[in-house]
Design a protein around this nucleic acid. Structure first.
Lengths: 208, 208
DNA sequence: ACCTGAACACCGTTCAAGT
DNA sequence: ACCTGAACACCGTTCAAGT
């Protein structure tokens, strides 16, 4: 249906649309061409093959993620706020995050947050290698958590389910634990708890 | 080249071999059939389509991971040892871990470790919902870290590289930090540091 | 400079037919 | 019960040819 000249931007926009709606698997050169009303080969002229297309898409996504503004009084609170903001951003683009991850560029998405974390590390009195270690620990923690979360959502039913596995007897005579492990995870809460624990330990004045 | 009767086990073995050597992308029904010296359609009779084949492969991997034996004196040391053992197991099967992850079953792999963690939580005096929260926090931490690590290894070169990004001026006048962030990550060290921080905070007698 | 169709070398899956 | 080849409906990519 594309009347005039086909542009690179137009191709990327349509590709992003396909991914957003039906996931990365739905992005085939032929479907994309049909969507645009052009021949498949036109796409090759504008953006190159499928790999180049995904590359460009990933680039676009990462660039469009926007800044992260820390909130809170103490460095600890501000770091937690950065972590939450990043998690939110990543969860808002589930399919594209998957694409970015498949292509091994997950960490690129963390760069704005990384800069914010450096400032907070300095504010907390950490410098040099210790500050760097702190930044990376938080980075791994947040990105890792989001990946696990996405994973869980994609496979909501596990066999055997945790309910069957955690009968009271298997739980070392702790029925409350069995019940808790049978319930779905409150990922938001778990995330904040874990980040707080990590940040608290690493920002402590005398932490090894 | 398979003389006599083709068996389900034989198919799975060959499939696992293909994945181990050349990654999941190399596992096509046609290549597998060629490897086995049979018609493509024979595979369908024995294990079903590609999805079923991957399913069976994942099942095999998870089942073959083996037990996890905690080591150390304090619960904290023992939990860290469980985390390290699990990380090692996952890193020994990089391609299959990728497969398991793509199919959303990453957490299945964590079940033996989960049982070990429950025992340690009890030993540390945690019970019920708090013990469950502890187990899950460690689980998310370890699995997440391994996923991020795999991600990093797959894309060793990032553009722009961290070296260019972290010039001294960008690092808030902290050249040591800039240098540290430009160096490759010591993931083993980072992993242990993060797990220790998390475990220490969550196992503390009066942790909120 | 931009777009096209035809062709090539792959896929996974189905199915009727063989033994 | 087990195995087969042919056929179908897809892929990504190349390339010579058009305007």
């Amino acid at each position: 249906m594309a009347r005039g000249a086909l542009s690179r931007e137009e191709v990327l926009e349509a590709a992003a649309g396909l991914v957003r709606q039906h996931g990365p698997g739905a992005l085939t050169m032929r479907k994309l061409a049909a969507e645009l009303g052009t021949a498949v080969t036109s796409i090759y002229w504008h953006v190159g093959g499928r790999e180049a297309l995904l590359e460009a898409l990933v680039e676009r996504t990462v660039a469009g993620l926007g800044e992260i503004r820390p909130a809170g009084r103490t460095p600890e609170q501000r770091v937690v706020s950065v972590a939450r903001a990043l998690r939110r951003q990543l969860r808002d683009h589930p399919h594209l995050v998957a694409l970015v991850h498949e292509r091994g560029l997950t960490e690129r998405m963390f760069l704005p947050a990384q800069q914010a974390l450096v400032r907070e590390a300095h504010a907390a009195g950490l410098r040099g290698a210790r500050a760097a270690g702190f930044v990376r620990a938080v980075q791994f923690q947040v990105v890792g958590h989001v990946l696990v979360e996405r994973n869980r959502e994609r496979a909501p039913v596990q066999r055997p389910g945790e309910e069957e596995l955690w009968s009271a007897e298997a739980a070392g005579d702790d029925p409350a634990l069995a019940r808790a492990l049978a319930r779905p995870v409150d990922t938001e809460r778990l995330f904040v708890t874990a980040v707080r624990a990590l940040v608290g330990a690493l920002l402590a004045p005398r932490g090894k």
